[in-house]
């Protein structure tokens, strides 16, 4: 039996990698993919704790997270398309109208 903390360490590493990608990458699409990585890390944590406690609430939460991630991806990609139409670029450094 693999200790639960190994799963938690894996989730933490995945979350930090996703955060690194969000902070570093300049392509809006890749930033979205890194957000998906972070959501998956959260899911893995839910499932690890569900296994540790032996109840299925964590599984229900993971299902909800997947549904919210689908909604987030749909709206986010629509915004990317709209921005690309008006600016001709998905580089987040080119999108700075609201920057102070």
């Amino acid at each position: 039996m693999v200790p639960i903390s190994y799963y938690l360490f894996l989730a933490a590493a995945l979350f930090c990698m996703g955060m690194f990608g969000v902070l570093v990458r300049r392509n809006a699409l890749v930033v979205f993919m890194c957000v998906e990585l972070m959501l998956n890390a959260a899911n893995l944590t839910f499932l690890a704790f569900a296994r540790m406690r032996g109840d299925s609430i964590g599984h229900v939460s993971a299902v909800f997270v997947i549904a919210v991630a689908a909604a987030e991806a749909a709206v986010g990609l629509a915004i990317v398309i709209a921005v690309f139409r008006s600016r001709g670029s998905v580089n987040i450094e080119d999108i700075k109208t609201m920057k102070h």
Binding site: M33, N40, N43, L47, A50, H59, A62, I66, A70
Partner: peptide, 22 residues
Amino acid sequence: LWAHTVAALQVLVYAGAIMVLF
């Protein structure tokens, strides 16, 4: 982690639907 259902949903929804959108 004994989460068979979530694993199936992961493949169906994430690897199937969301990635096709991407």
